[in-house]
Simulated scan of single mutants.
Amino acid sequence: MSDRTPPLARGPVAVDPGVVRDGWEVDARVATGPLTLSDESPLAKVHVRAPFDGASPAALGVGFGRAARADLGTGDVLVVGSGPGEWLVLGAPNTAGALRAAIEERLAGTGEFTTVLDLTHGRALLRLTGRDAATVLAAVCAIDLSDTVTPDGTALRSSLAAVVTDLVRDDQDQTASYLLHVERSSGQYLADALLDAGAPSRLEITGFRGLS
């Protein structure tokens, strides 16, 4: 048996101080205020492409512009219809391989040409949570984030602080919460932009939360 320590994974956002969880170095801080920002990059991120007008949307259970929880055989996941014929599936850390296999098996029955890719380590995922979360986002994007226009379960792609971002409203305990999915290289920049925009509202960094 090898005594080699498995490599430690790190998200794109600097941590201070750090703690190891699920093989990832994550921020050890626990915010106590009502408005928080966390780096959720340890979540498995699987990208799916398939015909937007075929059988795949029904197989995945989510259409374009919506997000919903599902069980694809690997535990609770969030399926996001991030674009026409394009989905992002988020799962627990270290489940990307099993999640990819489960999605491929599910889509195989459609007979359609599909691609399923593990993007976990190549992308950043932030979560902004709190009553004033929409106010913070309004400072860096032009989307109407009111409850009537973008309610819980809404998914869209827009520019946040000049960065192309998948924005998913995924409320937590009846509190507004937004997942922000970007290229890994933009993760620290977007986090800094949000912290600047959220300073008047006392936005705080908190540790990895996961999907729950």
Rank of each mutant, 00 (worst) to 15 (best):
G122W: 05
L137M: 05
A139L: 02
S56H: 08
P34E: 06
W24L: 00
A59G: 07
V136E: 00
S186L: 08
R184K: 10
R100G: 13
L78I: 05
L128V: 01
G75Y: 06
L203Y: 06
D76C: 04
A193D: 05
G75S: 08
P51I: 11
D144K: 02
R184A: 05
V80C: 10
V164M: 02
S146R: 07
A58V: 09
G73L: 09
G207P: 04
A70Y: 08
F64A: 07
S185H: 03
A50W: 10
S159P: 00
A138H: 04
L211W: 13
L180D: 01
Q188D: 10
A191E: 09
L117Y: 09
L35G: 01
D152M: 03
L43E: 11
A58H: 11
D118K: 02
A138N: 02
D39Q: 04
D144Q: 01
D27H: 00
A139S: 10
A124P: 05
P12K: 08
P51W: 11
G111C: 07
E183G: 12
G97A: 12
A44K: 03
H47M: 08
T175L: 04
R131T: 12
P7D: 14
S212L: 07
G97T: 15
Y189F: 15
E40M: 08
D22Y: 15
R127S: 07
T32F: 03
V26W: 01
A176W: 00
T175A: 07
E204Y: 02
T120H: 09
C141H: 04
A50Y: 14
G18E: 10
T148A: 14
P151L: 08
R157N: 04
P200D: 08
A59K: 09
A176M: 01
L99R: 11
A67G: 08
V163G: 03
D53G: 05
D147W: 05
L195R: 13
G187Q: 03
L99M: 14
L190I: 02
G63L: 03
L180F: 00
D166M: 01
G207F: 03
V168P: 03
V182Y: 06
A31K: 08
A9T: 07
G153V: 05
P34Y: 05
V30R: 11
D76H: 12
R21M: 13
A58W: 05
G73H: 12
V89A: 09
V19S: 08
T95S: 15
L60R: 09
A199E: 14
A108T: 13
A138G: 02
S82G: 13
L90R: 12
H181S: 12
H181K: 00
P93W: 11
E40L: 09
N94P: 01
P42E: 06
A124D: 07
G81S: 09
L190N: 01
L137P: 00
E183N: 07
E105K: 13
